[in-house]
Simulated scan of single mutants.
Amino acid sequence: MKIDLSGKTALVTGSTAGIGHAIAKGLAGSGASVVINGRGQDKVDAAVRKLEGSGAKVRGIAADVSTAAGCKALVAALPDVDILVNNAGIFEPKGFFEIPDEDWIRFFEVNVMSGVRLSRAYMQGMLKRNWGRIVFISSESGLNIPAEMIHYGVTKTAQLAVARGLAQLTQGTAVTVNSVLPGPTMSEGVETFVKDLARQNGQSVDEAAANFVRQHRPSSLIQRFASVEEIANMVVFVASKEASATNGAALRAEGGIVNTIA
Rank of each mutant, 00 (worst) to 15 (best):
E52D: 10
N37I: 00
V58K: 03
I36R: 10
G40P: 05
S33G: 05
S30K: 14
G38A: 05
S33Q: 15
K57Q: 15
G40V: 08
E52Q: 14
V35N: 01
K43P: 02
A28L: 02
G53A: 10
K50Q: 11
V48I: 04
S54A: 15
S30V: 07
G55V: 07
A47C: 04
V58N: 12
A62E: 07
G40Y: 12
R59C: 13
V58A: 09
L51C: 03
A28Y: 11
D42R: 00
G55S: 06
I61M: 11
A32R: 07
E52L: 14
V48N: 08
A32F: 06
A28S: 15
A28Q: 11
G31P: 12
A47Y: 07
A62D: 10
D42G: 04
R39P: 05
A46Q: 14
G60E: 00
R49L: 07
S54M: 05
G31D: 03
G38N: 10
K57E: 14
N37E: 09
G40W: 02
A32N: 09
K57N: 15
D45C: 04
G40S: 12
A56C: 13
I61P: 13
D45W: 03
V48K: 04
K50W: 01
V34D: 14
G31A: 11
I61S: 13
V48G: 13
V34P: 15
G29S: 14
